[in-house]
Amino acid sequence: MGGRRATKQGGMVTVSLPADCRIGAQVAVHAELVAAVQASAVALDGTRVERVDTAALQQLWLFARALEKHGGALTWKGASQALEEAAATLGLTTILQLPAQQPA
């Protein structure tokens, strides 16, 4: 499963988040993120995310924190509106280094 979404290109690991990115998907997402946490640069692709919950956002935050501890860099290849809204609701937009919310 991990190989399908995580891709490595020139030292940059990309992890794509699934459309249904809720608690049921988090064990799988965790496996991919664990594989990426030692990388020097990780790009998260949240463009496909349609449903997202606290479990997902908590995991992303803890991942960002762990990556930073190792000196890795986090970037976003984009985030869906659903992802941005949920992050904002929990007060995690800044911490997650999400791109600022675009006015609708």
Binding site: R22, I23, G24, V27, D53, A55
Partner: peptide
Amino acid sequence: MVKQLRTKADYQGV
């Protein structure tokens, strides 16, 4: 039933 359901991986958080 709820107890049993929660032991299934598929039903965490449902």
